[in-house]
Write a protein that binds this DNA or RNA. Structure first.
Lengths: 323, 323
DNA sequence: CATATATGTGTAAAGGGTTACACATTATTC
DNA sequence: GAATAATGTGTAACCCTTTACACATATATG
């Protein structure tokens, strides 16, 4: 690797001058500028970013902590973060926490050591690793309740409410909600959205629960259809659960959407892969990632965020599982 | 951040001694050792990894270049890379190249600047950014034809052949192959696998082509079913295409697997989300990532790879779209 | 008991940049 | 034309670790 010293020698100037040329600060004569530039080109010199980091205590890197990239919700998010980061000259280090506080701590330490300029994280769990006192700009995604960290969330409550209302409006008489795990914030919010859409409206409703995993959803669906009859509308806490219920329904010969309507949540890409296509509450996943990243970069650049909670709107995509 | 200097002062020794304690090399008396260790604990000192990198020209980071994390094939791969890297104390920097050579070059420069210890990359395209002369250990995934770079691939040819043979054996009389794009190596290999299973066997076959994208697959499927009749078996170049064809077939009221059998390729998770579940040729995606990473780390540690091509076996998963 | 070897610790240079400060030169102002 | 400001460049310290080398002491060897 070519160093600044070699460039300086070749150009017959000091390293300081070369540095000035690179960083475009301080005074450099036109003549010297040209000379140095040409040497830089000739030697294909690239300033060593590690050395820079050491001095500046800055790395142009953003740390991204997500539960699991394998969960279909996160690739798009990660992609958005990378795209925006890239636009501003930042790189991203991706870490899968598996919701494991130990792993999270480990990554946090790593980030500090590496002088990352900022951190974006998603934990769907509620108890928190101590994120607040680590003295690095940070933005939370899809996580509420913390009053000190700027957060970007989608409006889970409202989306769930709208979805439920859609089902009712489509003539559903016996509605069910398959809620997600209790300790996950969005699942909680969606549950409340459902309840508020249904409670006191004289509507017949049931609640069941499933993990955000296909296999578990199918198991729960099998049980569900055995123990419940006459259900003609289901609002599922996410698309994975919805896919599981749809599969089992089809297998049992239940006609969707004629006899049973189903709405999911997330707007996962696979909603279009299945048939009938899944009606779902779409979260602006890419936008959430983009907004979070822009926000983080703003903070990195020294601006205070205008607000602590950025709530992104959800939209209903009506497809084949509703009439 | 606490520095080694502060630790040294507090412990009443020189920085060299502290460094020796941290790195467990050189002579340190039992007494000093204890003393220094306790100070390190007390101050919660963590060696600055940037400074270390600067000295060692090493970063404990692995660069991973993939086309697009949003493509369902890659999250699992990325996950495997991260898991294995983690086990060996490496972190991973993830980059989406979009198959864009410029972006690839940019990332490669970045990696050199950051002293990444090694690089894993996937390009499905055949023309190559110059990966060979960058003087960093490197492993290619899912990419053939390069004779200098150690590669991990799955056996696309054999998998395709087996899949085709499976269809024939299940009684398919008029078989079609929906091939993937021409410039993508795995799609090419699968095409040849199909041809070799079918050519000279007195079998009736057709070839069509589609992008590895649902929308395009659906368009092509619409056309396909209009222009072809009597087709009772389709081998698709990947699961996304298969999903598109399945959807359109179901929409048209074609009975799957009774009247039409479909086999995909990849073993993508969404194959289980759809109904009937997709029969597919499963690639050991996670294993491929893990093997590639282990191989890379081996090279980083100075061992030569035993072979240049690591071919991983594919397995057929029979599910609902075949009889 | 002198010499060689092992043990323990510190000093300073190196790794590749950035920048405060010093110094020299040129341009401006009165 | 002298004082002041602006411009151009170099020297050296600094960012934080690691390690070669120097030095001192303790132990082993003949």
């Amino acid at each position: 690797m070519v160093t600044i010293k070699e460039v300086a020698e070749e150009a017959g100037v000091s390293v300081a001058t070369v540095s000035r040329v690179i960083n475009q600060n301080g005074y450099v004569s036109e003549e010297t500028l040209e000379k140095v530039k040409s040497v830089i080109d000739k030697l294909n010199y690239k300033p060593n970013s590690i050395a820079r980091s050491l001095y500046h205590k800055t790395s142009n890197m953003i740390g991204l902590i997500i539960p699991d990239i394998t969960n279909p919700f996160f690739p798009e998010l990660a992609r958005a973060v990378e795209d925006v980061a890239m636009m501003y000259g930042f790189k991203v280090v991706l870490c899968n926490s598996d919701q494991n506080p130990e792993k999270e701590m480990k990554y946090l330490d790593l980030f500090k050591e590496k002088y990352v300029d900022g951190i974006i994280f998603t934990t769907q769990s509620q108890e928190s690793t101590v994120y607040s006192d680590l003295n690095v700009p940070i933005v939370a995604l899809d996580r509420i309740g913390d009053t000190t960290i700027p957060s970007v969330v989608s409006n889970n409550y409202k989306g769930a409410k709208k979805a439920t209302e859609l089902l009712l409006q489509k003539g559903v008489k016996n509605i069910a909600h398959i809620r997600g795990p209790k300790n996950i914030a969005p699942s909680e919010a969606r549950y409340h959205g459902f309840i508020d859409a249904v409670e006191g409206k004289g509507v017949n409703y049931t609640i069941s629960e499933a993990e955000f995993q296909l296999k578990d959803a199918e198991r729960k669906a099998e049980q569900f259809f055995e123990t419940h009859t006459g259900i003609d509308g289901i609002f599922c806490s996410n698309d994975t659960i919805a896919a599981g219920f749809l599969k089992v329904a089809l297998k049992k010969g239940i006609k969707v959407p004629e006899d049973l309507q189903i709405v999911g949540f997330d707007g996962s890409f696979f909603g279009e892969f299945i048939y009938p296509e899944l009606t779902t509450v779409s979260q602006p996943i890419y936008d959430m990632g983009a907004v979070a990243t822009r926000l983080l970069i703003k903070i990195i650049q020294g601006n205070q965020p205008e607000k602590l909670l950025y709530e992104m709107p959800t939209t209903i995509i009506e497809r084949g599982t509703t009439r």
